[in-house]
Every structure is written in C-alpha cells, then in structure tokens.
C-alpha cells in the first residue's frame, strides 16, 4: 500500500540537496527578520544611541529630526525591507560606536577568530581522535579508565577558570608564553589551549562512544571471525562507521568556535568576533549586534548543511542513489 503524497512532498523527499538549500535560505530570512524585530524592540533607539555614544545629550527636537533621517519613524515592516535591501547589497549599516561600517568591522575581526577557531579545532581533532579510539579499543583496561577520568575532569572545568590557571602556571610562573599578545603564534597558544582542552575532553568521550557503538554491531564479530587483522578492522571498517557521528559533533563545534569565544577572547585580549560583540553589547551598538547574530546564523546553518552533506556521502545507501536524488528503491542481485 502506498500512502498518497503531494507532488510537493515527493519533490522535497527526493531532491535532498535542493530541499536543504531552499530551507537554508528560508531559515536565514526568518533569522534576519527576528534579529531586526528583536533589536528594534529594545528600549533605546538608534538615534539616541548615536548621540549618547558621542557624549552628546540630544534635545528632543534633534532626536526627532535624526529619527526622521534614519527612517526610524516608518512602519517596522518598511524599515525591515529597507534593511534587507541594504543587507543584500552587503550593507549592514554603521556601527554607532565607531562610525565604521559593520561589514568592515566584521571582516576585520574575522581573520583573528578564524585563526583561533581553526587552531583550536585542529588541536582538538589531533588530541581526541586517537585518545577516543584508544579508549574504545582498550575498553575496561587501565588506559581507558585513565583517559575517561582525565576527560571527565576536563569536561567539568569551566573555561574562564582554565584560562586563568593556564595564564598563572604557563605564563606567569613558567614564563613559557606571554600573558598578552606579542607575536602571533606565541600569543595564540594559551587561548587555543583554553578552547581545545575542554572541547577535546568532551570529544574523547563521544568518540569513544561512537567507536564502541560500531564495535557492538554484528559485523564486527563477523570481521573477527573472518580473521581480519585488528588494524584493518579499525581503519577500514570501524573508522568509517564512527565517522558520521563524529562529523555531526564537529559540525556543531565549528559553529560555536567560529562565533568567536567571547569569554576566552576577552580574557586573553584577543581581537576576535567574540570580544567585539561583548563590547557592542556593552554600549548597545545594535547594528554590530545584528551583524553578529546574522553571521552566527549563517555559520550554524552552513555547518549543519555541510554536516548533512558529508554524512549523506558517507552512507553508501545514499551515495549509490546519487548525490542529488534520494530514492528509496531496493534491487536484487543476479
């Protein structure tokens, strides 16, 4: 028996990639609207902030004129469409605080955040993949218990505290690293460690679980019964099976890392997106906040999209049906 489905639903099911792209754009539109509406609900408006941030207390008449100038008296929807139009041209408005274009400010801070996020992510992968796999393979042995105990502690340590500990021991006591930035690589070490250590600890646990789940499947015993060497079972079978939960995990962290780590960036005085938005929030610099929220939305959605695509490619059932189409069909062998 087949259930009746609308042509639309069928299209949605089959054209996996296309449907993901369309929903990506729709969600983005929704996020932009929400961002705009929420920041326009705030008690102080743009005109007021514009003057206050320059140390001027504006007269009511001046405020009214500026509101007229900035289009703040128009209906909300008109304002939104106007804002959206500018957005599509790449104009995110001007920072009240610095008078600089928001896009310029974002692109200026972005490389710093990218460097920090990239390094932290790489270090996390290098630490957690081998350790997680080792813990799974040596389940119940001393090495497994040790790795799990350390990672448990690591997960529980708050970011800012770890940052301060690292600063105190590695920078102040031992003098290995500068407390505050001199030279790119050296000053990056501590923030990268602060970000990567707790992340690695939670990764180790989840990677261990992913491998154990793979080892619990029937085919694992089958491979052993066939006399396949252990290293081959690991690299050629377990790894590809454990990869999709790991990719999903990584996709989520990429989002949060690329948003800039506000606390860590602030503690180490790292000029990235995180510390930028903390400053912007402090002075109610709405255009900057809006720009940041949009960026976060784009990054999270993109990471999700890429994760889905990669997982889809990792699954032979999906791969075989072609990259663009999703088709549920079963064929027999001759």
């Amino acid at each position: 028996m087949t259930r009746r489905t609308s042509p639309f639903a069928r299209f949605w099911k089959r054209h996996f990639i296309l449907s993901r792209l369309i929903s990506f754009l729709l969600v983005l539109l929704g996020v932009s609207f929400l961002t705009f509406v929420v920041s326009s609900l705030a008690p102080s408006d743009g005109a007021e902030m514009y003057y206050l941030s320059r140390g001027i207390t504006p007269s009511p008449q001046l405020l009214e004129e500026t509101r007229e100038q900035m289009g703040l008296n128009q209906p909300l929807l008109v304002q939104y469409l106007h804002w959206l139009q500018n957005l599509l041209r790449g104009d995110l408005g001007e920072s009240y605080n610095f008078g600089e274009s928001v896009l310029r400010q974002l692109t200026r801070k972005l490389p710093n955040t990218l460097a920090l996020a990239g390094a932290a992510f790489l270090l996390t992968a290098l630490l957690s993949l081998p350790l997680g796999a080792l813990a799974a393979v040596r389940r119940g042995k001393v090495s497994d218990l040790l790795i799990r105990a350390i990672s448990f502690v690591g997960v529980s340590v708050p970011n800012f505290w770890l940052a301060l500990l690292l600063l105190y021991f590695l920078a102040v006591q031992l003098g290995l690293f500068p407390v505050i930035g001199t030279g790119v690589l050296k000053s990056m070490a501590l923030p990268v460690l602060t970000l990567a250590l707790p992340l690695s600890c939670s990764y180790v646990r989840q990677i261990r679980t992913a491998f154990l789940e793979e080892m619990g499947k029937d085919y694992y015993i089958g491979l052993k019964a066939r006399g396949i060497p252990g290293w081959r079972i690991f690299f050629s079978h377990l790894l590809s099976g454990a990869l999709s939960p790991i990719v999903t995990l990584a996709g989520m962290s990429v989002g949060s890392l690329l948003g800039g780590a506000a606390i860590v960036e602030t503690i180490f005085g790292w000029p990235g997106l995180g510390s930028m938005v903390v400053d912007a929030i402090r002075v109610r610099d709405y255009p900057v906040i809006q720009g940041y929220v949009l960026w976060m939305a784009v990054i999270y959605l993109l990471a999700g999209l890429v994760t889905d695509l990669v997982c889809c490619l990792l699954d032979p059932r999906q791969r075989q049906k072609g990259f663009w189409r999703r088709n549920v069909r079963k064929e027999g062998a001759k």
Binding site: D218, I221, G222, L223, A225, R226, H237, G241, P316
Partner: peptide, 13 residues
C-alpha cells in the same frame, strides 16, 4: 551466523 548480514560490513562493497 544466524543474521546473514553479520558477515558483511554494510558500508563496503
């Protein structure tokens, strides 16, 4: 094995 799928890794040809 009883489960005929147990012999093979579903992700490899």
């Amino acid at each position: 094995f009883q489960d005929p799928g147990a012999c093979f890794d579903p992700r490899r040809k």
